[in-house]
């Protein structure tokens, strides 16, 4: 069994927790509570190349005041989902700094990463165009890009699977069977 440390980053209120909870538990959280730090685990053996994979997922909140923790997660994380909300331009603009910070901490250009435009169900309130996101991703040395909706369950699983595939591609491991295990951990 292999553990993947995925980190979800983005400005406050873009739906990092919502995406994660939707992925892990299949429910949409209506609640509007900011997260300090949450940690989830999910067994995803049935999805990825018939191999039992344990994905350890960390959600990190990007409030300025939590910078110390953020650095630590950047150091430990293997794959990063950078989330913005298609309804708020500023959340989109913030990501450039975030990516640069990750590359700096990781000290490499090749970091498994995906750009996510969340809340794509709110088409009426859209201010960040899909092309904008695609262009942005292209500038990031062809980073993966998805538009998602935690509420409408669009592209939620794809985000995390894509990251896991990217990590696998980067650091392949020999396949072996692991006993099935599923639990959820909250930090």
């Amino acid at each position: 069994m292999r553990e993947y440390k995925l980190v979800v980053l983005g400005s406050g209120g873009v739906g990092k927790s919502a995406l994660t909870v939707q992925f892990v538990q299949g429910i949409f959280v209506e609640k509007y509570d900011p997260t300090i730090e949450d940690s989830y685990r999910k067994n995803v053996c049935e999805f990825i190349s018939l191999q039992c994979e344990l994905i350890r997922l960390l959600i990190v909140c990007l409030q300025e005041q939590f910078t110390a923790m953020r650095d630590l997660y950047m150091k430990n994380g293997q794959g990063f989902a950078l989330v913005y909300s298609i309804t708020a331009q500023s959340t989109f603009n913030d990501l450039q700094d975030l990516r640069e910070q990750i590359l700096r901490v990781k000290d490499t250009e090749d970091v498994p990463m995906i750009l996510v435009g969340n809340k794509c169900d709110l088409e009426d309130e859209r201010v960040v165009g899909k092309e904008q996101g695609q262009n942005f991703a292209r500038q990031w040395s062809n980073c993966a890009f998805l538009e998602s909706s935690a509420k409408s369950k669009i592209n939620v699983n794809e985000i995390f699977y894509d990251l896991v595939r990217q990590i696998n591609r980067k650091t392949p491991v020999e396949k072996k069977r692991a006993k099935k295990k599923s639990n959820c951990i909250l930090l």
Binding site: V21, E30, I36, L186
Partner: peptide, 23 residues
């Protein structure tokens, strides 16, 4: 709104301590 969220998200810091211990 605790009921809506299920057990996934801790309401406040209180569960956090427990979860850490569990971890």
């Amino acid at each position: 709104e605790a009921g809506q969220a299920g057990a996934a998200l801790p309401q406040t810091h209180q569960p956090l301590v427990q979860q850490t211990a569990e971890n």
